[in-house]
Simulated assay, not measured.
Amino acid sequence: MNLKNRMRVMSVMAIAAMTGLNACSEEQGAATNLATTNQDLIGTVIQQNLAQPISKKEQLSMWMTVNGHRFEVILEDNFTTQALIAQLPLTLYLEELNGNEKHGQLSGTLPTDEKRPGIIHNGDLMLYGNQTLVVFYKTFSSIYSYTRIGKLEQPEELQKVLGSGNVEITFNKD
């Protein structure tokens, strides 16, 4: 379930809980009927949200602009991306490293959930440690751990657009 759907379910559950607490002071019969109604409402909302496929419009995304080219980044639904989004718009100077990535330091730290991906893909956007943003422009094997932030849509031209040296990249919401 994506973040938007989770928020809907949590809102309904909170309303149901508050209504249920209020009903405790009512007559027993009315409270029982209200509890049943709340359970039915919660069940219906959950079923509707699970039945709806996540459309591209509901996905979390941002834009990355480099050398006049704009790439959409489909973001992971995690605390790291939420913290990064809170910093947008953001312009970073990224340095070339190993002929397969550009990396740059954020002004502050982000929460992490590091994992070893094994394979890094062209277009992956990840966090190394808690402060280094990395844009990968080649696919390769890696033993390092990263927190996944997102993936660029249509990264085929990314290596050419980034060039061989250091580069300035801007991230924004629209």
Rank of each mutant, 00 (worst) to 15 (best):
Q131C: 04
I15W: 01
Y93K: 13
A16D: 13
A83S: 14
S55G: 15
M10C: 08
M10D: 13
E156H: 09
L92M: 13
N49A: 13
F171H: 04
T36P: 01
E153Q: 11
D77N: 15
T109Q: 06
E58Y: 03
D113K: 09
S164W: 01
H103W: 03
F79C: 03
Y137K: 12
F71Y: 15
L106E: 08
I143L: 09
P89A: 01
I74T: 14
L84G: 13
I42E: 09
I143K: 10
R8Q: 11
E156W: 00
V45C: 10
V9A: 07
L97T: 04
S164Q: 05
M1V: 15
K151C: 05
L60I: 07
L133D: 11
R116C: 14
D77M: 09
S11C: 09
Q39V: 14
M18T: 12
L94C: 14
F71P: 15
M126D: 06
I46M: 10
I120L: 09
Q105I: 11
L127S: 02
I169V: 15
A14H: 13
G118M: 10
K56C: 04
T139S: 15
G20K: 02
F71T: 13
E76W: 04
G150H: 08
K57T: 09
F79D: 08
N5P: 00
L41A: 13
T65E: 10
R70W: 01
S145M: 07
N130M: 03
H121F: 04
G104A: 06
N78W: 02
N38H: 05
T91F: 01
L34H: 05
L152K: 05
T80V: 02
N166E: 02
Q39T: 12
E157R: 11
Q87K: 14
N67Q: 11
T132Q: 09
Y128N: 10
G150Q: 08
Y128K: 07
L110M: 08
N5W: 01
A51W: 02
D40I: 13
R148Y: 07
L92F: 00
A23K: 03
M64N: 06
T112D: 01
N78K: 02
E76G: 08
E96P: 10
